[in-house]
Write a protein that binds this DNA or RNA. Structure first.
Lengths: 336, 336
DNA sequence: CTACCAATTTGGAACGTTCCAAGTGGATCA
DNA sequence: TGATCCACTTGGAACGTTCCAAATTGGTAG
């Protein structure tokens, strides 16, 4: 077992200096195309593999991007992470991914590990709590960092933030429920005190207030189970509720299951709208109306934003909101 | 903006040599505990951050593990990737993740990028096709690599393989359906010619052959949609089918939606068993029976296996099969 | 024929670690 | 007292790149 060839081996084989090989690797216009071709040939001949660790040591640009996600098991985040990673990949960057399970200690640990590894930039969907430690370390290291999907660090701290327009999405959906003739609309899911919850609930409340309808909010960690349980709670304790705005699709899909179980006709007796528009919405029964966040496109935008910051030094604005669309399906539409 | 402190700065602050600082970083028992404490204090004082790229250059052990997944959007793979990443993280390793969307070119690209970045080992759930290029590059680089979940490279090529015991899981499930009184059992999903399909179908066929039941296989790319569509096909063309073994849970869940839509009573008129036992199975209506692969535990095992290979040079056996369990729920059980 | 210029190419010094061989100083032993 | 040993400590040479200043080449103008 012999060691991996280096640019010096390539240089020897091609009959040039290591500097020239280096220039070829960087696609420099300085080298003559004959030379370039010869160097390339030599590389192929001896099976040369570029050593980024060494390059990084010298020039500190590893082409590594850190991606930290608080709940990777949620399909919404999975879709986001996948789209960011694939977009970065096409631009020659490699993604270091970590799931934190919303644990601030875990988050602090993975962030510091990423900094040690010399990531050039980070994208983080943070856990609530523990933000000081996490963002402090990132800023001390001077690494460009984009906070996405959830806003925990005050933008004033200098961490730009980007997310779908949750509030507007909720407004669209609740107005739609009103148009479909809903008399009493509940909001299910979301943990109080979190930006993501606040934005949605405030959109919901503002529409209800405008028409003088009394609000009803059932909080809870977003999951299918919560949705399933909510059906029972609503029918037992709030029988006048005839429409529900869900914090996310998992809750909406859970409610569909709950309705099926208790014999309630979702879409007719109880209108339901989810949020996120994950793939499954179109394949459930009844198909679940939802607020589409275009998360794949959002992920690609995030990838582009962070790379522009990195490569062209274009610092993103403090807060960006991406467009959302209401997708109406059977779960909230009158059957004609 | 000043540069990041190095061990030389730490050494100067602590009044020792850089070699001593290096030893402290490696937790060497050689240094006196007073010295160690002083060095640690100095690090904290000047805000030292370890530079792994430099360490890697010298000792070629980056603590980077590559994880390549063919379909990260499928919750089964997400769960696997998450559990591997978190297990590696607790042992001080950082995970480079890439999704390939089953595209061999994408796979070749991300694998070579990972090799450039000096990953110490790789775990790969490969795409079908393109295996020669991918595994060839990994082997040339001399990087320990574990093939998981799907077997595309012949084990003879020296790439160890680990997966749940798909065949046995199918056998358990189909036998269960027979016990529940099924008269005609179909198999839905899976693409022909793939190891994952072959193993399941062969398990299914072997049980059916033993009892003299005629098989019926509906192939197709595993998705909710396929499951939903399959309900229509079965009722229209194969009305005698009263039980279905699904390639995976997505298909099973899609069938539940299809049943709800066409008014078929899943679990009673049509018994359904899925495969993988993703979280959602317990929250669907009716709850979906499934073959549990214990994928989180499997992921942790994989992480342990690859680290043992790396750190203790324990080369894994050519093929490992992990235990699977049948979880019976309402979708296949007689309602009592 | 010389001087100069543009186009290429090049040697050597970084970058921040690890590792090795060698060094230090105090205690113990003959 | 000097030799030996032990427990630490240390200087300097790697590791494989990039980058800079300087060198070389070949062509062209004076």
């Amino acid at each position: 077992m012999k060691r991996r060839p280096t640019i010096i081996d390539v240089a020897r084989t091609a009959g040039v200096s290591k500097s020239t090989v280096s220039l070829v690797l960087q696609n420099s216009p300085l080298v003559k195309s004959d030379t370039r071709a010869e160097v390339r040939r030599a590389m192929a001949e001896i099976g040369y593999v570029y050593n980024r660790a060494a390059a990084n040591l010298r020039s500190s640009n590893a082409g590594l991007i850190g991606l930290v996600i608080n709940d990777l098991r949620n399909p919404f985040f999975t879709e986001f992470a996948t789209s960011v990673q694939m977009a970065l990949s096409t631009r020659g960057y490699v993604t270091v991914l970590a799931n934190t399970d919303d644990d601030p200690d875990m988050q602090a640990q993975v962030v510091s590990a990423m900094i040690e590894h010399g990531v050039s930039a980070m994208v983080i969907s943070p856990s609530y709590d523990g933000e000081a430690e996490t963002f402090g370390a990132i800023q001390r290291a001077g690494i460009p960092c984009l906070q996405v999907l959830r806003n925990v660090a005050p933008a004033a701290a200098g961490i730009p933030f980007a997310a779908p327009d949750y509030r507007h999405g909720t407004v669209l959906a609740v107005e739609h429920l009103l148009e479909e003739g809903a008399r009493r609309i509940a909001f299910v899911g979301g943990i109080e005190g979190r930006s993501v919850t606040f934005e949605r609930v405030s959109g919901y409340l503002s529409v209800l207030e405008a028409v003088g309808m009394e609000p009803l909010v059932l909080s809870g960690r977003a999951s299918r189970k919560l949705g399933k349980d909510a059906v029972g709670i609503l029918t037992a304790q709030h029988p006048t509720v005839d429409a529900v705005m869900c914090f996310n699709d998992l809750i909406g899909l859970g409610m569909l299951a709950g309705c099926a179980q208790t014999g309630i006709q979702a879409g007719e007796t109880l209108k339901i709208v989810g949020f996120d528009d994950i793939d499954e919405c179109g394949d459930s029964f009844p198909a679940l109306s939802s607020v589409r966040c275009n998360i794949a496109a959002f992920g690609e935008d995030i990838a582009a934003t962070i790379l522009n910051w990195l490569e062209k030094n274009e610092v993103p604005v403090a807060e960006t909101r991406s467009q959302v669309d209401l997708i109406v399906r059977e779960s909230s539409r009158r059957i004609l």
